[in-house]
Amino acid sequence: MRWFEIILVALTLVSALIWLADKLFLARRRAAREGLLEAGDEPLLVDYAKSFFPVLAAVLVLRSFVAEPFRIPSNSMMPTLLTGDFILVNKFSYGLRLPITNAKVVPIGEPNRGDVVVFKPPHHPEQDWIKRIIGLPGDRIAYRDHQLFLNGQPVQVQPVGVYQGVGNGAEMTGAEEMTEALPTRPHRVLERTDLIRADGQGEWVVPPAHYFVMGDNRDNSEDSRYWGFLPEANLRGKAFLIWLNCEGWFCSGAFDASRIGNTIQ
C-alpha cells in the first residue's frame, strides 16, 4: 500500500500549501481588489483545498500514528487469520513512524514474543506481510519435524482436532489443528503431520534488533525459516482486531459475519 501512502501525503501537502498561500497572500490581494476589477470571489482550487485538507490530514494522522487497515491475502496465518480477513493494526505499539519512510521518530515499546505483526519483508520491501513473532533478539530457535524449540526447550503442543477449512482455506482441510504453548502467548497452529518438508528446518540465533517470525500455518508459510530475520526497522505495527471478512474485493466472495470484532491472539 506504499502507493496509497505516497498519494495521501502528496495530496495533504499540496492542499495545505494552497490553503497557506491563500491565507498569507492571495486572500489579501482579493480583498484589495474587491469592488474594483474583480468580485473578490475565492478561487475554486482554494475552496477545494480548504475543504479537503482537514479530512486528508485526519486520515493521514490516523493511519500513520493510530491504526491502519490491512487485508489478509493468503492462508499463511491460518487458523488465526483467514484469507479475506480485514484487520486493524496498532501503529504506535512499537513507536511512532513516519509515513512512506517508516522511520521511527518516537520510541514507545518493543514487540513481545507471540505478537502478530505487519512488516515489510527485507526481500520485498514494497509489500506488507503478516506473521507471528517467535524469536526475540538473542533467542535460539530451532524447527525440526514439526517441532518448535525455543532456547533449547521444545514448545509444547496440545492437539485440537482435524481442521475443516472453508473457501480459500479448504486446501488445509485434514491438517492437524493444535494449540502451541508459546510462552505468554498460546495460539493455534496448523500442521500437515503426514508431510515432512526437507526445507524450512534448522537452527537460528536471532541477532540484535531483529526478530524471527513464522506463520501459524506452518507448512504453508514463507517466513524467517526461508528468508532470514526481520529487522526491527521494517515493523509496521501490531495486528489486534478483525473488522470484516469477505474473500473477494468489495465483498464479491464469501462473507463471514462471525469473524467481525474478533481480537487477534
Rank of each mutant, 00 (worst) to 15 (best):
F4H: 08
I6W: 06
I6K: 09
I7A: 09
L11T: 03
L11A: 05
L11C: 10
T12H: 01
L13K: 01
A16G: 11
L17W: 01
L17N: 05
W19S: 09
L20H: 03
L20D: 00
L20V: 09
L24P: 06
A27D: 10
A32K: 14
R33Y: 09
G35S: 11
L36T: 14
L36C: 05
E38C: 04
E38R: 08
A39N: 09
A39I: 05
A39F: 09
G40A: 09
L44R: 10
L44W: 12
L44C: 07
V46S: 11
D47Q: 12
Y48A: 13
Y48L: 15
A49T: 00
A49P: 02
K50G: 05
K50T: 01
P54S: 03
V55G: 04
L56Q: 02
V59Y: 02
L62Q: 04
L62H: 10
R63F: 14
R63Y: 10
S64V: 03
V66W: 10
E68F: 09
P73Y: 15
S74P: 08
S76G: 12
T80D: 04
L81A: 09
L81K: 03
T83Q: 15
G84H: 06
F86V: 07
L88K: 03
N90V: 02
F92Y: 15
N102W: 01
A103V: 15
K104Q: 13
V106K: 10
V106Q: 08
E110M: 12
E110S: 15
P111D: 04
R113T: 11
D115W: 03
V116E: 03
V117K: 04
F119E: 02
E126D: 15
Q127C: 08
W129D: 01
I130L: 10
K131G: 01
I134A: 04
I134D: 01
L136H: 04
L136D: 02
G138L: 05
Q147G: 03
L150C: 10
G152D: 08
V155F: 07
V157C: 02
V157E: 02
G161N: 07
V162H: 04
V166F: 05
G169A: 15
A170G: 08
A170N: 09
A175F: 14
E177V: 13
L182H: 06
L182W: 07
R185T: 12
V189Q: 02
L190V: 07
R192S: 06
L195Q: 14
A198K: 12
V205P: 03
V206D: 05
V206G: 02
V206L: 09
P207H: 06
F212R: 05
G215L: 06
G215T: 04
D219P: 13
W227N: 14
W227A: 12
F229T: 10
L230K: 00
E232M: 02
A233S: 13
A233V: 07
N234K: 11
N234R: 15
L235E: 04
A239L: 03
L241T: 01
I242S: 01
L244I: 00
N245K: 04
G248D: 05
F250D: 13
C251T: 15
G253S: 10
G253V: 11
A254P: 03
F255K: 14
F255N: 11
A257I: 13
R259N: 11
N262G: 00
N262R: 13
T263Q: 06
T263K: 13
I264F: 04
Q265P: 14
